[in-house]
């Protein structure tokens, strides 16, 4: 497990947050993670306004049919190397909406997902943990290049 820990923070992660039909529960917890109590900005993480600037794609929601092509497009716009984090049960498995006719998800059906953060909604601590895991993966991806 030791190896799994982050030792240095080599770069600042820029995150693009996308809602694919969530109930907002996860989204407000993501914003809560940014604000003073949890304050992930102290690690240099920042929400950005466009996927073209982002290293990490943070996705919430069960993936509504209407959003399917938009998720793909956002994913394709991101520069390599990139990682995708799904926050919340409904994006990971469908959650309470799993049987609905308008759900095209879970998200890993459409784009490759690297980290899942379960919970409905997960606590901000769990989201931060998920981002740290993504960081490790990103460093590995960069090492390969």
């Amino acid at each position: 497990m030791k190896k799994q820990q982050l030792e240095t923070l080599k770069k600042s992660l820029w995150v693009f947050h996308m809602n694919t039909g969530s109930c907002n529960g996860c989204d407000i917890e993501i914003v809560a993670a940014l604000t003073p109590r949890y304050d992930i900005e102290r690690f240099g993480m920042m929400l950005v306004g466009t996927p073209r600037h982002a290293d990490v794609l943070l996705i919430t929601g069960p993936l509504i049919k209407k959003m399917e092509d938009k998720v793909k497009r956002v994913y394709e716009q991101m520069p390599e190397p990139k990682v995708v984090i799904v926050v919340g049960n409904c994006g990971s498995t469908g959650g309470v909406f799993h049987e609905s006719y308008s759900v095209a998800g879970p998200i890993d059906k459409v784009i490759p997902v690297d980290v899942y953060v379960p919970g409905c909604p997960p606590r901000p601590e769990a989201i931060i943990n998920g981002v740290a895991k993504a960081w490790l993966k990103l460093e590995r991806l960069e090492g390969k290049k």
């Binding site: 809602n19 039909g21 969530s22 109930c23 907002n24 529960g25 996860c26 989204d27 407000i28 929601g61 069960p62 509504i64 209407k66 409904c90 959650g95 309470v96 909406f97 049987e99 609905s100 006719y101 308008s102 759900v103 409905c120 909604p121």
Partner: peptide, 26 residues
């Protein structure tokens, strides 16, 4: 964000619907 919540509700019993009703909005 149309998730078909009412349709899901018509396939569950009232106690189960409570969980979906909570997840209409976070």
């Amino acid at each position: 964000v149309h998730r078909g919540i009412e349709w899901i509700g018509m396939h569950r019993n009232p106690v189960q619907i409570l969980y979906i009703a909570e997840r209409i909005c976070g």
